[in-house]
Structure formats: structure tokens, C-alpha cells
Amino acid sequence: MRTVSHSQSTSRVDAVRARAEKAVFTGLLALPERIQRMLAGRPVVRDGQTLATETQLTLRLQKVSGLPPVETLPIVPQGRDALLHQSLLAGGSLPIGATRDLEAAGLPARLYTPRGLRPGTPSGLLVFLHGGGFIYGDLDSHDAPCRLLAERAGVRVLSIEYRLAPEDVFPAAHDDCVAAYRWAVEHAAELDADPARLAVGGDSAGGNLAAWVAIEAAREGLPCAFQLLVYPTVDAHHATESARLFAAGFFLTKQFMDLASDTYIPADADLDDPRLSPILAELPDGLAPAYLCTAGFDPLRDEGEAYARKLADAGVPVEMKRFPDQIHGFLNIVGVGRTSRSAVEEIAAALRRGLAGRVTGPDATASTPA
């Protein structure tokens, strides 16, 4: 008679629970908006903006689930496991032409090729740097948005898994990402990338890293045609009105940001270091055109928009977009619901335009709500 070990039994129960959770979550976010509104409660309005109904419902489900917030868990491994679980649940399974795992400057990397491109056909390439506060995130946590960006923009995407804190503190992630971008430039031919259409991009902490890589590329004379900055953290002080307004209750919290800063940034580091605070950087000539988007209900909103204005004031072509009904992290919500995916599809369209040389600007305030 075959016996089943306790670990096997637990694994099966966890798998069943995960499938049930996914079915419930996906089903609720597929409901008509009017039914979602009934379940979510009265509209949340703050700073003249109304939170998307499905996002409000998601936050309510998260609250009633009883699961502890990620920032209250030990980073390794519980916090990382929890955030990865959330990302996979929201990302779903999206189609892609092909993926290939490789190493870039000694770092784990994944190359995404959309279905419309054949091997050997040069295309634009986005070097993508994931978010996660410099302490969370990996190739798998951002697999879904990388697939969508590649497919919708019609370009290849090279996702980089850089070192994280607490194992490796500042400036490890920054050094890794600059090295990975240099590697992509040097190996453009084997990546089937057009050297004239290389871009760097990322979300949140990855947006900070992407902004810094773009600055370093301009200083070193490396080709960089475009930078894609999704709700980037660009000011390590976080002393803005949006940081106060949205300090709690909208996924990214002040507690999370404090944990990330205290873990990645050594006590003796200078928060004015332009790597940590690109908004204080002296911008070099030849800086790549940019698309920078923010979320209305995001503590990082105001600093991101201030950086867009800084780029514009320096004469950098920049397209600024605020998604007023979204929260931080919407880039990962592409496998369920409607509004977040629609926003990410707009970002992919901006990437397509950017690598085709069509970037609006330099007026960064044109798309920013008053």
C-alpha cells in the first residue's frame, strides 16, 4: 500500500487552495462593474480622483483575507514568497512567442521574443528592471508584464534579476543594472537587437534603476534610445504630499517604503546620492527621451511627476501620463480585471512609439492632471 508523506499531502492542499483562490479572484474581477461596485462599497475619492472599482474590490479582498501585509513578514523567505504569490495571481498566464533564460553580466536574465518576430530578425530591445523596493522581485514576479510589453510593443524584452538586500546593499543593485545594460549593448547582435533601438525601463525601484542606467548611458556614450519609467522612486526622502495622502491603505505603504529603505540603504549612505535620488542628479547631454507614468493613488506619484518636469526642463523629450484611478503595482495586474491591464497596454504602446522615435515633449505637464 502506497503511503503519502505529510509534505506531499500539504503540497496538494496548498495547490488546491491556490487554484481556488485564483478562481475566486479571477471570477470577481470579471464581474460587471456595477456588481463589483456593490461588493466593493462606496467609491473611494481622494485628491479629486476616484479609485477604480475593481482595484477597490481587490484591496477589500486583501483586507478580509486575513493574510498579513508583506511588509510585516520577514523578508527572506516569507516576504519574497508572499509577494511572488501575489504577482503570479494577478499576472495570469499570458502568451509569448518565445522565452530564453540566460546570463547578462553574470546575472540571471530572461529574453522575451514576441510572436511576430522570427529569430535573426533585429528589433528594438527593452532592458527591463523589476520593482520590489530593492528587496523583493525576480524574473518570475514580473514575467507577466514583460510578456505583455513584448507582445504589445512588438519588441524584445530582456529582464534582469539583480542582487537584492539584505544580502547585498546599496549600491549593489545599481552597479548590477549598469553592468547588465553595458552587457546588452555589447551583445546586441546575439540578442537580435537593433543597436539603434535599445531602451531601458522598470517599475518602482526598477524605475529608479532605469533612470540611473539612462543617465550613466548618456555619460558613457552608450546607445540608449528610450527610457520607460513606471511609477519610479526617484527621491529617497519621499517628502511629498502624495506620500502623506497615500501612506496607508493603497497597497504600497509608508511602512513598506521604510522597510525597503532601511534594508537597502546603509545608515551612512547619503540620501542625496543621485543614484538613490535621480531627481537631484545633474542630467547629462544626450539623455534618452522618456515616457514616465504614475498612479493616482500612489505615495510615489508626486516625486515621479516632479522628475518628469525635471527632464522636460532639461530639454529631454518626455511624455508624462498619470493613471488617476490606479494604485502602485498595477503593472503586475495584467491577468485579471480590465482597468490595470488597459493601463499597461497604454504603456506598451508608449514603448512601441518610443522605439520608433515618436516621443512627445518636452512639455511634461501636458498629460498630468491639475
Rank of each mutant, 00 (worst) to 15 (best):
A189Y: 14
A189K: 07
L191F: 08
L191I: 07
L191E: 06
L191H: 09
D192C: 09
A193Q: 00
A193C: 00
D194C: 07
D194K: 04
P195A: 05
P195V: 02
P195N: 08
A196I: 02
A196L: 13
A196K: 06
A199H: 03
V200Y: 06
V200D: 03
V200H: 04
G201K: 09
G201N: 11
G201W: 04
G202I: 07
D203E: 15
S204I: 05
A205W: 13
A205D: 11
G207P: 11
N208F: 03
N208V: 06
N208E: 08
L209H: 12
L209C: 11
A210N: 05
A210V: 13
A211I: 02
A211Y: 06
W212T: 15
W212V: 10
V213T: 14
V213Q: 06
A214G: 05
I215G: 14
E216Q: 15
A217K: 02
A217N: 09
A217C: 07
R219L: 11
R219E: 15
E220K: 07
E220I: 03
E220V: 02
G221K: 08
L222S: 02
P223R: 08
C224T: 10
Q227L: 05
Q227C: 05
Q227G: 07
L228T: 08
L228H: 13
L228G: 06
L229G: 09
L229T: 02
V230I: 14
V230W: 03
V230K: 04
Y231H: 14
P232N: 01
T233H: 09
T233G: 15
D235Q: 04
D235W: 14
H238S: 13
A239S: 10
T240I: 02
E241W: 05
S242A: 05
A243I: 05
A243F: 13
A243V: 04
R244L: 14
R244C: 09
R244A: 15
R244G: 09
R244S: 12
L245Y: 01
L245E: 02
L245R: 08
F246P: 02
A247R: 12
A248P: 03
A248S: 15
G249M: 03
G249H: 11
G249W: 07
F250W: 12
F251S: 12
F251D: 06
T253L: 09
T253N: 13
T253A: 08
K254H: 14
Q255F: 06
F256Q: 12
M257C: 11
M257N: 02
M257V: 10
M257A: 10
S261G: 12
S261Y: 11
D262Q: 15
T263A: 12
Y264D: 07
I265D: 01
P266Q: 04
P266I: 09
P266T: 04
A267I: 07
A267M: 03
D268N: 07
D268P: 05
A269P: 01
A269Y: 06
D270E: 04
D270I: 00
D270C: 03
L271A: 01
L271S: 12
L271N: 01
D273C: 02
D273W: 01
D273G: 03
